[in-house]
Simulated scan of single mutants.
Amino acid sequence: MAVLTRSEILRHIEAGTIVIDPFDPAQVGPASIDLHLDRQFRVFRPAQEIFHVTDDADYREVTSLIEVDDYFLLLPGQAIHGVTQERITLPPDICGWIQGRSRFARIGLMVHVTANFMQPGITRAKQVLEMNNAGPVPLAIHPGTAICQIILEECVGQATYAGRFQEQELP
């Protein structure tokens, strides 16, 4: 597989094979695209009982959805789900990886803890971010911040994602 550089990313976006909405060419770096944090967060409710991790597990049973206007206060050790402002569509021969940005990692913010793979052929999907404050100080997380980046790769062959999170809107 080969990582797409800025010129290839812009070529795909201009051709319409990759769609990012909203999009500004300034988001594209040498080999990545910055994505911005939206206003919705999914927070964990205080534990009342054991939650069984099985194939039927539904995160909505242990979380609540909230929306903020100014910022979300992420306490040390706290985990939340955020979501990108951008909706992303990839063709069947390109996949992607979500990565945190080093400027935030340096203050203990883990922007994407697990499940950072973006399947080829996703359609108009916002990307859910599994965020965690691994540092010792509370962090005010502001919507609109360029919080993470995606790295895109060409696939060998083609595939199209048709799972339950196709066209996801919320964390």
Rank of each mutant, 00 (worst) to 15 (best):
C95E: 08
I66E: 09
R101I: 07
P91G: 04
I141D: 02
D55K: 12
L37I: 02
H36R: 15
W97S: 10
S7V: 10
R87I: 00
P30V: 09
S7I: 10
R45E: 14
Y161F: 13
I150D: 01
I94P: 01
H112Y: 06
V113W: 14
R6V: 03
F165Y: 15
L73C: 02
P136N: 07
R45V: 12
T89V: 02
G121L: 11
A125E: 00
G100F: 01
I66S: 02
A15M: 11
V19W: 08
C148Q: 02
L90P: 04
A146F: 03
P46F: 07
M131S: 06
A2L: 14
T145K: 08
L129N: 00
K126T: 11
A15L: 11
I9S: 04
N132M: 13
E14N: 11
Q78W: 00
Q27D: 12
S32K: 05
F51Q: 12
H12S: 06
G144S: 06
H36D: 12
L35S: 03
R11V: 06
E67W: 10
I151D: 03
A162C: 09
T89C: 05
A15C: 08
L170W: 11
E49L: 06
A159R: 06
T114R: 11
K126C: 14
A105K: 08
A47G: 06
R103Y: 07
V128H: 03
D69H: 10
A31W: 05
K126Y: 08
I66Y: 04
P143N: 08
E61K: 13
E67D: 10
P138T: 00
V43D: 00
L65A: 04
A2N: 15
S7Y: 13
D24Q: 13
S64N: 14
A26V: 12
N116W: 05
L65Y: 01
V19E: 15
R106T: 09
H36E: 13
Q166E: 07
R39P: 01
A57I: 12
T63N: 05
E8A: 05
H112G: 02
R6S: 07
I33M: 02
Q99I: 07
P171E: 10
A57H: 14
T114N: 09
L152C: 01
L35C: 08
P46I: 05
V128N: 07
G77M: 04
H81S: 11
E61T: 09
E86L: 06
P171H: 09
M1I: 01
P46M: 05
Q149D: 08
V137F: 12
L170K: 12
A159D: 12
S32F: 06
V28E: 02
Q127R: 04
L90W: 06
R106H: 11
Q78D: 00
A47C: 05
R164L: 14
A115D: 11
I88S: 09
I98P: 04
P25A: 00
A79F: 15
F104N: 11
R164A: 15
L37F: 00
L90N: 04
A79W: 11
P25V: 00
T89Q: 06
H142Q: 05
D24C: 12
F51E: 13
A15T: 04
I13E: 05
L37A: 01
A2S: 14
S102T: 13
Q27F: 13
